[in-house]
Each structure stands twice: as structure tokens, then as C-alpha cells.
């Protein structure tokens, strides 16, 4: 087990968005399902340490990659600059291979970022400010972080939103690779039933509770 919510209750305003939720995430792909407003995003944000728990516990691991339901790219910077910033700020992770590219130094880091940009089909737009890209391109740029930051735990909130079929296939391939490496990935999604085929564990929540 990499991380877990135990008896997690989150109150936003005057509403309990999560109620005594237990959720374990171990190596492989875990899927969190539920209708709109069920509390999936809040559960992921709690695991990422972005919302305080009113009750319960959560251990936030050191090397965690959280990709929210919006692209999280800073406007004013290009795709390449955003990816470089996150890679440099994160530094080394537990999943980084022990060779120079993993150290995030100089040309090796740039090659890694360039490779991710190419894989996610952003080569032609890599040096344009992200606000000039379409929503789908910005989402691809965000997902390119899967290839530039190697983390033991990845939290993906509705990763298929705004993506075309080719990008959806790339996400599936990334999830399968993560599973094969033994990394832990938690995906919150209300659709894409085919996700269940690669999921080791599926949770369902509704109205903030396990369903």
C-alpha cells in the first residue's frame, strides 16, 4: 500500500463532501468511480494534501504527481517552460532511474522533456504560450508530466476530458506502463469503462461515501 485515506471527512463550507471514506492505493492502477458531485475530485485533492481533513487520516507520500481536472499549466509560459519548471522544482524522485537523465541535469533533462513533448504530439506547439493552445492541447501538455516526472504515486482526475482518440490511447498506454513498472496510479473517472480492464482495484463512491 502506497497511500490511504482512513475515515476521511472533508467539509467545504457547510457541506460534508467526503464522509468517513476509506480508500487504499497500492501498486498498479486503482480506479475511483462515481457520478458527478460524488466527491472523486475531493478525494484526490485530500490525497494530494490540497484540502484539510475535518476527520480521519491521510499520509501524503513524498513523490506524488497530482494532475487535476484542469491542465495546471501557468499562462504566460510555453509548454516546454512549464514542463521544465515542474521537473526542476520536483528534483529527484524515488522512481527515478539511477542514470544521469534522472538527475534532471542539463541536456539530459531537456532530452527527456523533448521526448515527452514529441510523444504527446506537441512538438509544433512546444514553444507557444499555453494560453494560445486549445483545451485538448493543454491537457496533453499536462499529461506529458507523466513522462517527465517519475513518481511513486500518480493521481489523475478525469484524465480523458477534452482528449481525442489518439491521446486517450496514449493515456491508456501510460497507465499500462505504470502498472507494469509497479507504480501506483489512482484514476478518478465517471466514464471510460475500458479503464476497468487494467485496474487492479475499483472503488465506487456516491455522495462522499463508499457505495
Amino acid at each position: 500500500m502506497i497511500t490511504a485515506l482512513r475515515g476521511a471527512t472533508v467539509i467545504l463550507g457547510d457541506r460534508a463532501v467526503l464522509r468517513d471514506l476509506d480508500l487504499e492505493v497500492g501498486p498498479g492502477v486503482t480506479v475511483l468511480r462515481g457520478p458527478n458531485g460524488a466527491g472523486k475530485t475531493t478525494a484526490l485533492r485530500a490525497l494530494a494534501g490540497l484540502v484539510p481533513l475535518a476527520r480521519g487520516t491521510c499520509e501524503v507520500p513524498f513523490d506524488l504527481l497530482y494532475l487535476g481536472h484542469r491542465p495546471q499549466m501557468l499562462h504566460g509560459l510555453t509548454v516546454r517552460e512549464n514542463l521544465r519548471f515542474f521537473t526542476e522544482l520536483r528534483g529527484r524522485t524515488s522512481r527515478a532511474p539511477a542514470y544521469s537523465a534522472a538527475l534532471g541535469v542539463g541536456g539530459a533533462r531537456e532530452a527527456r522533456i523533448g521526448g515527452a513533448i514529441g510523444r504527446w504530439g506537441l512538438s509544433a506547439d512546444a514553444d507557444r504560450p499555453v494560453e494560445r493552445l486549445s483545451a485538448g492541447q493543454r491537457r496533453r501538455a499536462s499529461l506529458a508530466r507523466l513522462d517527465t516526472e517519475w513518481c511513486g504515486l500518480t493521481l489523475l482526475d478525469e484524465p480523458f476530458a477534452e482528449l481525442d482518440d489518439a491521446a486517450v490511447a496514449l493515456v491508456h498506454a501510460s497507465l499500462a506502463s505504470a502498472r507494469d513498472r509497479g507504480d501506483a496510479v489512482l484514476v478518478a473517472s465517471h466514464g471510460h469503462a475500458d479503464l476497468d480492464e487494467i485496474a487492479g482495484r475499483i472503488y465506487r463512491i456516491d455522495d462522499g461515501r463508499a457505495a
Binding site: G49, L50, F62, Y66, G68, R70, L74, H75, F86, R90
Partner: peptide, 18 residues
Amino acid sequence: DRELADDAIDAVLALPGG
């Protein structure tokens, strides 16, 4: 405002020492 435009702030806050 720029940080909130695409929730860029969340990505930084979720990093160690962010």
C-alpha cells in the same frame, strides 16, 4: 489570477515544499 486560470497553483502546492 494567472495561477488560478488553469489551476496551476494546485500543481505547485502538491509538490514537496511547494
